[in-house]
């Protein structure tokens, strides 16, 4: 396997697992809060679950970027494209925005959602407001994804 291909695959792997760490930590935080609230009132499950699930999107964005790289390299069957070393570095760097924006925003979104869950516990009618708060944090993961997609799209193999 050429170095170029290896670097590109490393990029895909970084995008998936670094953003995944962000989401896993975020959902971990929100999930703890959710379970805490549900020990008092299990009937809140339905309105809490969107808040606990919201920090999960970073992982999905990372996975999605990784998948785009896989598609680009033709790893899903058919002819595997052999990028040059430079193209390999390019693909790897293109994966950085989604990976690191996802890592940090996932953790912080988890915190915002956790406090949102405490808010919903006291005021179940206001459930969309914490969701919008969470979306404020998520913007930067979305922008990271956007940059990665545009960069990947710009790299011609």
């Amino acid at each position: 396997m050429s170095l170029g291909l290896t670097l590109a695959i490393l990029g895909a792997a970084l995008a998936v697992f670094i953003a995944g760490i962000g989401s896993a930590t975020g959902i971990g935080l929100a999930g703890q809060a959710a379970s805490g609230v549900m020990t008092e009132d299990p009937s809140k499950f339905g309105i809490i679950i969107p808040l606990a699930a919201l920090p999960g999107t970073q992982g999905i964005y990372g996975f999605l970027s990784g998948f785009l790289v896989i598609l680009k390299l033709g790893l899903l069957g058919g002819q595997i494209i052999q990028p040059t070393v430079q193209q390999g570095w390019q693909i790897m760097f293109a994966c950085f925005p989604v990976a690191f924006a996802g890592l940090v925003s996932g953790i912080h979104q988890g915190k915002v959602c956790a406090s949102g869950i405490y808010m919903v516990a006291k005021q179940p009618k206001d459930m969309t407001k914490p969701l919008v708060m969470g979306a404020l944090v998520e913007t930067y993961a979305v922008l990271g994804l956007l940059a990665t997609v545009l960069l990947l799209n710009g790299i011609k193999l």
Binding site: I60, V142, L146, V149
Partner: peptide, 22 residues
């Protein structure tokens, strides 16, 4: 620029649907 999220979100649903199908 904030509206660029529409692209990112639109892409994510489409790609995941593709992944499921593959």
């Amino acid at each position: 620029l904030s509206y660029s999220r529409i692209l990112a979100l639109g892409l994510s649903t489409g790609v995941i649907a593709m992944v499921v199908n593959s």
